[in-house]
Design a protein around this nucleic acid. Structure first.
Length: 280
DNA sequence: ATAAACGCCTGACGGC
DNA sequence: TGCCGTCAGGCGTTTA
C-alpha cells in the first residue's frame, strides 16, 4: 500500500485528539505487546521487544519517508508497511465486554491503557518493525524529505546531475529522496512532462525544477485526499480518482488524448504518455 | 557505478 | 467451478 501520503495519513489519524472508536494514541501507555509473525520484527528479537515496550508511553507520532515513527518513553518504535501493511486502532472490547477479534493477517498487536488495541495488519508479511534507542540506526541512509525547505532547486539539480540513471528507478531509490513509490513517481513524471527512462544527468535546470515541483504537488494532492485506495488493502483515500497515468494503460491521456503506455522498468510497472512525456 | 534478477508472501483477477 | 499464470503501492541481497 503505502507511499508517503498514505503513511502521512496514518500518522495524522494516530495523532488526532478525541476519544471514541478511533482515538489518537499520543500520551497513551502501552500495556502489552503480542507478535504473531516473528519475522515482522526486524530488531531486536521479538522476545526482547515484547519485554521492552510495556510501560512505555507514546510521546510523539511522526513520519520519515515511508516509515511510521512512534517515539516512546525510552525507545523509538519504527514501522515500515511495505506492500500490504496497514494500522488499525480499535476498542479492545465492545459494549458487552466481548474482546474484539484479531484479524487473519494481524502480525503485531499492542494494547493501550487496557482499552484500545493497535494492530499492524500485513497480508504479505513484507512489513517490518524496529525498536531502537536511536532512529538513525534505521533512517540514517534515507535521502531528503521531499518537502524539506532545505531541498532547493539548486541542490535537487545537483543531485540529479551527480548520477546517470533513468528517472524512474532513481526516484524510487529512497537514498535519492525518501517517500516516493510506484504510483506517485509515475504521476510526478507525467506532471513534469518527463519520460521515465530519461537519464537524470540529461535534464536541464528548468526541467529539474519542474520535476521537484511536480513531486511536491503530487504528494500534496495525495495527502489532501488521504492517499490512494486501489485494492483490498487500504481504504479511505481518494487519490485514485486523480490518477493521470497509473493504471490507465491503453486509455486516453487526459491532456492530449494519446493512449497511455505501460512498460516494465526495474521490475516495476511504469505508466506514461508517450506524447506528453517524450524521450528525446 | 548501474542494472538486472530474485527472494520474501498472500490474494485477486483473467483466461481456459 | 477449478486450476494456473500473472500481477500487486517495497526493498534487501546477489549477480552481471
Amino acid at each position: 500500500m503505502p507511499e508517503l501520503p498514505e503513511v502521512e495519513t496514518i500518522a495524522r489519524s494516530l495523532r488526532q485528539t478525541g476519544q471514541g472508536e478511533k482515538p489518537g494514541i499520543v500520551g497513551m501507555h502501552i500495556h502489552q505487546v503480542e507478535v504473531y509473525w516473528k519475522r515482522t520484527i526486524q530488531t531486536p528479537s521479538s522476545e526482547e521487544l515484547i519485554h521492552r515496550i510495556p510501560g512505555q508511553r507514546v510521546e510523539e507520532v511522526g513520519r520519515r519517508g515511508k516509515y511510521l515513527l512512534l517515539k516512546l518513553t525510552r525507545d523509538h518504535l519504527i514501522i515500515h508497511l511495505r506492500m500490504s501493511g496497514d494500522i488499525r486502532v480499535e476498542p479492545l472490547t465492545d459494549a458487552s465486554g466481548q474482546i474484539t477479534p484479531l484479524r487473519k493477517h494481524d502480525r503485531v498487536a499492542m494494547v493501550f491503557e487496557e482499552k484500545y488495541r493497535f494492530s499492524f495488519e500485513d497480508p504479505r508479511k513484507f512489513g517490518r518493525v524496529w525498536l531502537v534507542r536511536d532512529p538513525v540506526e534505521v533512517l540514517g541512509g534515507l535521502g531528503p524529505e521531499p518537502f524539506d525547505p532545505q531541498l532547493t532547486d539548486e541542490i535537487f539539480f545537483h543531485r540529479l546531475q551527480s548520477s546517470r540513471r533513468q528517472l524512474k528507478p532513481l526516484l524510487l531509490d529512497q537514498t535519492f529522496m525518501a517517500g516516493l513509490g510506484n504510483i506517485y513517481t509515475d504521476e510526478a513524471l507525467h506532471r513534469a512532462h518527463l519520460h521515465p527512462l530519461s537519464l537524470s544527468n540529461s535534464l536541464h535546470e528548468d526541467q529539474s525544477a519542474q520535476l521537484l515541483a511536480a513531486i511536491r504537488s503530487v504528494l500534496l494532492t495525495g495527502i489532501e485526499t488521504n492517499g490512494a485506495s486501489i485494492d483490498w488493502v487500504y481504504k479511505g483515500g481518494s487519490f485514485q480518482n486523480s490518477f493521470q497515468v497509473y493504471g490507465r494503460e491503453k486509455k486516453a491521456c487526459y491532456t492530449c488524448g494519446h493512449a497511455i503506455e505501460k512498460i516494465s522498468v526495474g521490475q516495476r510497472g511504469t505508466h506514461f504518455c508517450p506524447v506528453c512525456q517524450p524521450l528525446k
